[in-house]
Nucleic acid binder design. Structure first.
Lengths: 190, 190
DNA sequence: GTTGTTTGTGACTGGACAGTCACTTGTGTG
DNA sequence: CACACAAGTGACTGTCCAGTCACAAACAAC
């Protein structure tokens, strides 16, 4: 209030930088065991700050988790867009394929998949359900716009994406049985 | 040991009946908030027994949850089989469609969907991952055998089933936006 | 150097929950 | 009745965890 004109000058707020750092850690740590089973302490530990500080920067555990989920979908949408740009000028099928490739590369460490699944499972908390809706909306709009594919193709893209999540979570890639190969067939992951 | 010949006679063990009763409750209650967020006390309360008794009948909370997941997939496979039997003698596409219909009817109360999603999310616990694998194996084998459809069709069946789970968990049926309608289009639920 | 602001923490609290154990009650058998 | 055994529970314990609060240290401004 006293010095409104100084705000845009000088050093960037360190607190904001910490927020970003901690958020990146939160994505990883929450991805391991989900919302309920992950203590905020674990995130703090991984980020080398105190638990109290995490609570100061985020609105409770729920706020932290929601922020992590938003960040997760943000990254996914960004990767999709980037992937599509590399195949610019080709047909929509090729563009969807390029986006698949980008997604597969992005989720090589399973954090983003796991976090999506955990968020989907925690949808009984309204704020989390809203975050999931925001995320899906963002992905759908990104994929539709960047590929130009028709609605059915985009829907199919999502459906097989969900199947991919199941495969990864259940570790079906490591199961050597005919049923597992059926589920797994043609789906890229790892 | 003392009276092996009496075992098959007389009254069916009441403890076994309780196990079944409690298990049915566990499916419902775990479906609400998942493995970690659901106290065993809630299951006991819903089944009108003491917490201590639930622990006596099941091998810890984990044993109870795993049993619930197994029960869940058991019911799904049974419903699929029953649905297919009603359309016996038709083509595999019609049989898959009949199974979809049976599944949609079965999951009218969302317990079985929610429990599958929760289980998928709790796959970081090895015993739960194994239960999920068992369940998927059972469903895949049931669908393949009962429909006679080729592998790709079965895989597609699963993929769109997973998409259905996402729609239900995120409540996309209640969202009035174009992106939600894209995701939702042609998928039966409710 | 004192006053104010921001970054950051140690130490704590209150509640929830998994699992146990000693105990009671019911029931069939000799 | 006495005995054994199964069904069933109340009361407890130890632990973990979300969130708070009073305080410290750095840094800026005057």
């Amino acid at each position: 209030m006293t010095k409104p004109e100084v705000r845009s000058r000088g050093v960037r707020s360190t607190a904001e930088a910490q927020r970003v750092r901690i958020l990146a850690r939160a994505v990883e740590v929450f991805a391991r065991s989900g919302y309920r089973a992950t203590p905020v302490t674990d995130v703090a530990l991984e980020a080398n700050v105190s638990t109290a500080y995490v609570f100061r920067l985020f609105d409770g555990k729920l706020g932290l988790f929601v922020a992590a989920v938003d960040e997760c979908y943000e990254r996914i949408a960004a990767a999709m867009t980037a992937g599509a740009e590399k195949s610019a000028g080709t047909g929509s099928a090729e563009l969807l394929d390029a986006m698949s490739t980008a997604y597969v590369a992005l989720i090589h460490d399973r954090s983003l998949i796991a976090l999506q699944v955990h968020a989907q499972s925690a949808c009984d908390v309204p704020e989390i359900q809203e975050a999931v809706r925001r995320g899906i909306a963002k992905v759908v709009r990104t994929v539709s716009a960047a590929s130009g594919a028709d609605d059915d193709a985009v829907q199919r893209f999502l459906a097989y994406g969900q199947l991919c999540h199941l495969i990864v979570q259940a570790g079906l890639g490591d199961v050597d049985s005919s049923w597992a190969r059926l589920v797994d067939h043609g789906i890229r992951h790892d």
